[in-house]
Design a protein around this nucleic acid. Structure first.
Length: 150
DNA sequence: GCCAACGTTGGC
DNA sequence: GCCAACGTTGGC
């Protein structure tokens, strides 16, 4: 089983929303590298849910892949902010996955804490200027993160 | 709200 | 294929 990390703005969708809704709408990803990682996800893979652009930035809990990559419908919808005129149903460009809820942590594992940890230095998350919103987490890294869980 | 850093676009 | 300009991300 692989581990991943996905960013979300909690004002739009948080770990608490995942808890109450049970399944997430993970659409609107418009970055090729992030998309390719989503395409690599397998059923049951675990996903660290990271809260970005908010007061308490960091890992807030865990989800799991309950539906693997399929076309993100918003790319075909002219009304959607995620509309992509270069995409069509027979040639979809963007994908999404569905996540289920696994656990919400009692506190966020802060970005400052993650940055301070030499064991996690290789993660794109802690690298200066990185904006990647979906990334793999190696087994050494995820075991280490679970050890830091608040 | 600021702004550094990034990925994408499009003219040439 | 280069690269300047642009819009966006995301920490602070």
């Amino acid at each position: 089983m692989a581990y991943w990390l996905m960013k979300t703005e909690p004002d739009l969708f948080s770990i608490q929303d995942l808890l109450s809704q049970k399944v997430s709408p993970w659409d609107g990803v418009r970055n090729y590298q992030a998309r390719n990682f989503m395409n690599d996800m397998a059923l049951g893979d675990r996903v660290f849910i990271y809260h970005s652009s908010c007061k308490d930035v960091g890992i807030a809990g865990i989800g799991e892949v309950v539906k693997t990559a399929y076309p993100d419908h918003s790319q075909f919808d002219p009304q959607s902010p995620y509309f992509d005129p270069k995409a069509s149903p027979d040639k979809p460009r963007w994908t999404r996955v569905d996540l289920g809820f696994v656990e919400a942590w009692p506190a966020v594992l802060s970005l400052a804490r993650l940055k301070a940890d030499p064991a996690l230095a290789e993660m794109a998350l802690v690298q200066k200027g990185s904006r990647l919103s979906v990334m793999p987490v190696s087994s050494g890294q995820w075991q280490h993160i679970l050890g830091l869980k608040p």
